[in-house]
Simulated assay, not measured.
Amino acid sequence: LIDSKKRARAFGFVQKHLDEGRQGYLICPLIEEDETGLASVKEYAGLVKDCFPHASVGILHGKMKPAEKDAVMKEFSEGALQLLVSTTVVEVGVDVPNAVIMLIENAERYGLSQLHQLRGRIGRGSFQSTCILVTDIQNEDTLKRLKLFRDTSDGFQIADADLKLRGPGDFFGQRQHGLPQLTIADMSSDLEVLKKAQECAREIMSKNVLDAEEYRGLRAEMRRLFAKTGSDNVVL
Score class of each variant (00 low, 15 high):
residue 139 N to Y: 01
residue 179 L to I: 15
residue 165 L to I: 15
residue 232 D to Y: 11
residue 102 M to R: 04
residue 150 R to P: 00
residue 117 Q to C: 13
residue 80 A to P: 11
residue 181 Q to M: 14
residue 124 R to G: 05
residue 64 M to G: 09
residue 50 D to T: 08
residue 203 E to R: 10
residue 68 E to D: 14
residue 64 M to L: 14
residue 201 A to M: 05
residue 81 L to A: 08
residue 205 M to P: 01
residue 193 V to E: 14
residue 207 K to H: 01
residue 197 A to L: 07
residue 151 D to S: 02
residue 159 A to R: 04
residue 208 N to L: 00
residue 5 K to F: 12
residue 85 V to H: 06
residue 228 K to C: 08
residue 204 I to V: 04
residue 101 I to T: 01
residue 198 Q to P: 05
residue 151 D to Q: 00
residue 79 G to L: 12
residue 198 Q to R: 14
residue 22 R to I: 02
residue 215 Y to K: 04
residue 173 G to T: 14
residue 140 E to V: 02
residue 126 S to K: 10
residue 150 R to E: 07
residue 146 L to A: 01
residue 190 D to E: 13
residue 217 G to Y: 02
residue 53 P to F: 06
residue 22 R to F: 10
residue 11 F to Y: 10
residue 25 Y to P: 06
residue 84 L to P: 02
residue 26 L to Q: 08
residue 181 Q to T: 12
residue 124 R to I: 07
residue 6 K to D: 14
residue 64 M to Y: 11
residue 75 E to C: 09
residue 209 V to Y: 00
residue 4 S to Y: 07
residue 165 L to M: 15
residue 89 V to I: 09
residue 86 S to P: 03
residue 229 T to Q: 03
residue 211 D to A: 04
residue 50 D to K: 09
residue 105 E to W: 04
residue 225 L to V: 04
residue 131 C to L: 04
residue 129 S to A: 12
residue 189 S to I: 07
residue 217 G to V: 02
residue 57 V to Q: 04
residue 11 F to W: 06
residue 232 D to R: 15
residue 114 Q to W: 04
residue 24 G to V: 04
residue 205 M to K: 08
residue 124 R to N: 06
residue 76 F to D: 11
residue 97 P to V: 01
residue 206 S to A: 13
residue 172 F to V: 10
residue 1 L to A: 15
residue 118 L to N: 06
residue 214 E to C: 10
residue 18 L to G: 02
residue 127 F to E: 14
residue 173 G to D: 15
residue 180 P to M: 12
residue 234 V to R: 06
residue 5 K to E: 14
residue 234 V to F: 14
residue 82 Q to T: 09
residue 22 R to K: 09
residue 225 L to P: 03
residue 191 L to T: 13
residue 30 L to V: 09
residue 65 K to T: 06
residue 215 Y to F: 14
residue 35 E to K: 11
residue 23 Q to M: 07
residue 129 S to R: 09
residue 167 G to Q: 06
residue 122 I to L: 07
residue 79 G to Y: 11
residue 147 K to G: 05
residue 92 V to R: 11
residue 205 M to D: 06
residue 219 R to E: 06
residue 233 N to W: 13
residue 230 G to Y: 10
residue 42 K to C: 05
residue 142 T to P: 00
residue 64 M to V: 11
residue 218 L to S: 02
residue 19 D to A: 11
residue 175 R to E: 15
residue 233 N to R: 14
residue 203 E to P: 00
